[in-house]
Structure formats: C-alpha cells, structure tokens
C-alpha cells in the first residue's frame, strides 16, 4: 500500500513543471477576500476621519462599536453553527463600518449593536455566510434600524457643534437645512456619519476603481440616471435646473450608496451590461422614492429592491458561450 503511494508521488514530481494540465480558469489573480476588503476599508478612511472631525467623539464611537459588534457576531454565529470561522476575511468589518457610516453621530450606542446583529446574523449568516446573502447586510440593517427607531435614527447632531451634549435632532440638507452647494460637496453639513463629504467619498470611490476593486458601471449608471432625471424634471415642476440636480447628487447617501453599497460583489450583477441595468434601476428608484416617497431619502430602499432583482438581471445578461449558438437560433 505504502509503496504504491510513493510511486505515485514520484511520477507526479517527475512531470511537475514539464507539463501542467489543469481545468479552467487559467487566468489567475492574487486578489483574496481579505485583500479586497482591506482596500475597501482604506477607501472609507478619509470619509470616516472627516465624520469624526465634523461630529466629534460619537462619530468615532458609533462605527467602532458597529465594527466590533459585527466581527463578534460573525464569530459567535459561526462558532454556534459549527462552521469554519472566517472573521479574518474582514468582510464583517466592512459591513460594520458601512453600517456605522449610516448612523447619526448620536449617543444611542445600542443602534450599532442591534444593527450589526441583524446584518450579520439574520441577513448574512442565516442565508449561508459570505457570498450567499441576497441583499447588502449593512443596508438591510440600516433599514431595519430606520423603521424600528425612526426618531433615534434621525437624531442628527449639528455639524461642528460640540456644546450640545444630548444629540438634538437638527435638520439635514435632505430635511430642509439651508446649505450652500459648496459646503454640501465638501461635507460641511449635517447627516449620517459617513455620507456627508461628497469629495472624500469620491476620492475613496475613484481609489477603488483605480485599484480594480470596483468597475465604473454601477456608480456611473446610478449617478448618471439620477443626474439626468433631476436635471430634466426637477421636483417642484419646471424644466432643466442644474442647481437642483447638483443638490440631489450631493445630498443624502447617494454617493456613499453608489460607490460603496451598490457595488457590493455579492449583491450586484456579474456582467458590465447587467451592472449598467442595475445602476439605472437604482437611480430611477432613488429619484422616485425621493420625489414620491414618505421618507426624505430613498437610496437604501432603492439599492435593496435592486439587490432582490440581481438574479434576474444576471439571467437576462448571461453572456453567450464562445462559439455557442446565439439566442433564438
């Protein structure tokens, strides 16, 4: 028995390097989940730092708690369900940080904990763990928190206002605060911790594109659709209003959603064409929800709805096998 085995390894070693015959894929890439997630974390740092500068300590604590709780819940569920522990791939940390970005910089510290539990345990692990969740966990958790505690999720502190100890809800640009377009672009306004600075989010998003982590399709299609509709059909009636368009593009969580949420690998289509359809759908739904919805913001609902359609988009845009028959032939 042992002799046979030895012989087999000898022959294997002999042919090794002379002739390598393997099944596809033949193009290999050094990217691993951990590396990709680390790049996303790097891209999110500028916006995070800006959030802390604008809102102070709570803007650091809320995302930190969310990250810690996400990692902890991932670890605990995987231990409990006797699955291999994959905390090291950093995907739970990214989910936690994105969830933290969606929270107000208030002192309701239970929000990130409950949100992380919902994102990791219910949305991610119960559906089979990384790669198998059908909607973006961080966004689903945001909507869960938003529908459960609407008052606490809207308790936005005023920017640069450290005197107020209790977070008093102040108006954000989307709920009627008067902010100049430049301040809106730079992020000198109220809102969720990570969504305020369009400039820094753009830098992060472009970094991800340059590094090849995300493709241009979804952000361009998403922002382009929103820009086109808001330019041609402003909310208050009228026609062709560039300043309204810029306001719609820079306010709320649109840029954060377009670059960091909608581009999640697991919950976005595979092909470029599919991604374009996905982005346009997100854009249409976002504008419609903002115009006609009961809530001031529609980005998270729009992306969640499109997440649910990804399987269908993938089915429709499945590329033809090379050399195979065309559709309908």
């Amino acid at each position: 028995m042992n002799e046979q085995k030895n012989q087999a390894t000898v022959t294997e070693n002999f042919y090794d390097g002379l002739l390598t015959v393997t099944p596809s894929p033949h193009i290999k890439h050094t990217a691993t989940t951990t590396k990709v997630m680390a790049e996303v974390l790097i891209a999110l740092i500028p916006a995070f730092v800006w959030g802390v500068i604008v809102f102070g300590l709570n803007a650091f604590l809320m995302p930190a708690i969310a990250v810690a709780a996400s990692v902890l819940f991932e670890f605990l569920t995987q231990k409990l369900l006797k699955k291999p522990v994959t905390v090291g791939d950093l995907s739970a940390a990214v989910t936690g940080l994105l969830l933290g970005f969606n929270l107000p910089a208030s002192d309701s510290y239970f929000l990130p904990v409950v949100g992380a539990a919902f994102a990791i345990v219910v949305v991610k692990q119960l559906f089979g763990g990384i790669g198998k969740n059908f909607v973006n966990p961080a966004l689903a958790a945001r909507v869960f928190l938003f529908l459960s505690w609407p008052d606490k999720m809207a308790a936005f502190p005023a920017p640069f206002d450290r005197a107020v100890v209790d977070a008093v809800a102040s108006a954000t640009p989307r709920s009627g605060a008067a902010v100049s377009l430049m301040d809106l672009f730079l992020g000198k306004c109220g809102g969720s911790i990570g969504e305020i600075s369009v400039l820094l989010l753009l830098i992060g998003g472009i970094y991800l594109m340059v590094r090849g982590i995300i493709t241009w399709h979804i952000p361009v299609a998403y922002l382009g659709t929103v820009a086109l509709i808001t330019l041609l059909f402003p909310q208050g009636g009228g026609f062709f209003d560039p300043s309204f368009m810029l306001f719609e593009l820079c306010s709320g969580g649109l840029v954060l959603g377009a670059f960091f949420m909608a581009t999640d690998y697991v919950t976005s289509p595979i092909t470029g064409k599919g991604r374009l359809i996905f982005g346009v759908g997100c854009g249409l739904l976002t504008v419609f929800l903002r115009y006609f919805g009961a809530y001031p913001e529609g980005v998270s609902f729009a992306i969640l709805v499109m997440n649910c359609l990804v399987w269908y988009i993938d089915k429709l845009t499945r590329p033809r096998v090379f050399g195979g028959a065309r559709h309908g032939q």
Partner: peptide, 11 residues
Amino acid sequence: YAPALLFIMPA
C-alpha cells in the same frame, strides 16, 4: 424601553 417598531409592521 424603546420598542423596535418594525416588529409590529408587516415585515
């Protein structure tokens, strides 16, 4: 106690 309103909604 701040109840999680979502639980008495349809979802």
